[in-house]
Design a protein around this nucleic acid. Structure first.
Length: 425
RNA sequence: GGAGAGAUGGCUGAGUGGUUGAAAGCGGCAGAUUGCUAAUCUGUUGUACGUAAUUAUUCGUACCGAGGGUUCGAAUCCCUCUCUCUCCGCCA
């Protein structure tokens, strides 16, 4: 959520920054609602001040021996009743304005960082690094879905029977490989300084609103019919919400967490896209990195987070490139974002396998994550960041293709061999 | 699912209509003091919004789970909801 004060005091600057994302962000209704709200608030406060006085005076005079039924008290009572009536008209109006205002503010995306490249859409994203060209294989390989089915480590037909399309089941070595990847990534990130969390995967609406998935993107998540609970689309939601509505001790920052969770996405509007294989599923596994940091460090923390995600791809010797998203392709809550894209030789393309975002104080405002600096008065909003480190399913896809041998077997990446206890699938 | 209990400030825990933003204790902060790795004493102690002033603050309002209601006035009375805990049942 953007700071209403910032919007009020610098509407033009905010408007310009939002326009970098695209057209269609109108501040006029927000400014007008805020103006009305403030006017009402001032009026209401004045009435309440007088009302409080009356209450106090009546209490004091009765204590001092005045006749509770006497004229003096009756007059005050009458004035009090009068004020109450005026207030009863103002209060709902102000509340209504506040709700409208909040609804509009919740729908506004974050401002892009000054350093985010300006562009209209994903075609203007900037490739800032490419790694591992030497590891690219030269012989033809089967798409990962095909080879996995052929090896009997992945089933789709039977999984569809259990749930629906875009669900898969891993069998035997497939399941073991998935598990090994989870364990490997967690081990690496824990060693890099992240504290592991195994959070709830069902999350309530407040949590989704805090991280930005609600109210705008309700159709992206699965909702439980009988409860105010949703299947988390990413561990970002539960892990960031660990600290919702808290004032942290400044000494506690920075906080680094890693978490393995299944993730659930409805993939509405992507019918027909990526229908084969492991790329786009309703349920997939992911190891997520989450940071909660001081504002002045978030830029550096973002770079470090990116490196921690990249380190996994490099340890697995998977060719990838690093993309910086332009303003037009930036996610709703992000002020700056890097995507890591892994090389998939069968299709001859790079596919997103990690997304590392700095949210600034956008999520912290929604979530009420603040901290108090020792010796300083007041509180300030923390900055939140997160990134995949990495998406497991897509990593498995990349391994099945990049490590596919000419004879159709799969070599196990060296760093995974201790986990899988075998060298070939 | 059945029965019961509860929700107060960083924590513990008082408070059943009138200067209660809220006793007390603990913790935190500041100061004083003591021949000693700590004790004692004193003071202070939340958040948000608005308002002046401006980087020290002033004044006002709201906040005792949430939302309504009664009243001149509610932490305190009434209603609804949410959550937590205990016991029973069920269950990994």
């Amino acid at each position: 959520m953007l700071d209403i004060k910032l919007i009020r005091e610098n509407p033009d600057a905010v408007r310009d920054r939002l326009r970098q994302r695209g057209e269609g962000y109108d501040l006029a209704p927000i400014l007008s609602l805020e103006e009305q709200r403030r006017t009402l608030e001032i009026q209401r406060t004045e009435l309440q001040t007088r009302s409080n006085e009356i209450g106090k005076v009546i209490g004091q005079s009765i204590k001092a021996g005045a006749d509770p039924q006497g004229d003096e008290v009756a007059a005050l009572r009458h004035e009090g009743n009068d004020l109450k009536q005026q207030l009863s008209a103002l209060e709902p109006a102000e509340k209504d304005l506040k709700e409208q205002l909040t609804a509009l503010l919740l729908g506004l995306p974050n401002l892009p960082s000054e350093t985010t490249p300006i562009g209209a859409n994903e075609t203007e994203n900037v490739e800032i690094d490419r790694w591992g060209d030497d590891y690219k294989i030269t012989h033809d390989v089967l798409p990962h879905g095909d080879i996995a089915e052929k090896l009997g480590i992945l089933v789709t037909d039977r999984a569809v029977k259990i749930a629906q399309s875009r669900f898969i089941a891993l069998i035997g070595a497939g399941a073991a490989l998935e598990r090994a990847l989870i364990q490997f990534m967690l081990d690496r990130q824990i060693a890099a300084g992240y504290l592991e969390v195994l959070p709830p995967i069902l999350v309530n609406s407040a949590s989704l609103q805090a991280t930005g998935q609600l109210p705008k993107f309700a159709e992206e998540s699965f909702k439980c019919a009988e409860d105010d609970l949703w299947l988390a689309p990413t561990a970002e939601v539960p892990v960031t919400n660990l600290y919702r509505d808290e004032i942290l001790d400044g000494e506690a920052l920075p906080i680094y967490h890693c978490a393995y969770t299944p993730c659930f996405r409805r993939e509405a509007g992507s019918y027909g896209k990526d229908t084969r294989g492991l790329i786009r599923l309703h349920q997939f596994n992911k190891v997520e990195l989450v940071k909660i940091v001081r504002p002045e460090t978030s830029e550096a923390e973002h770079q470090a987070l990116l490196k921690d995600a990249q380190a996994i791809l490099e340890a697995l010797q998977l060719p990838y490139r690093t993309i910086e998203l332009c303003t037009g392709d930036l996610g709703f809550g992000a002020q700056k974002c890097y995507d890591l894209e892994v090389w998939l030789p069968a299709a001859g393309t790079y596919r997103e396998i990690s997304s590392c975002s700095n949210f600034g104080d956008f999520q912290a405002r929604r979530a009420g994550i603040r901290f108090r600096e020792k010796g300083k008065k007041g509180t300030q909003f923390a900055h939140t960041l997160n990134g995949s480190g990495l998406a497991i399913g897509r990593t498995m896809a990349a391994i099945l293709e990049n490590y596919q041998l000419a004879d159709g077997t799969i070599r196990v990446p060296e760093v995974l061999q201790p986990y899988l206890k075998r060298e070939v699938l």
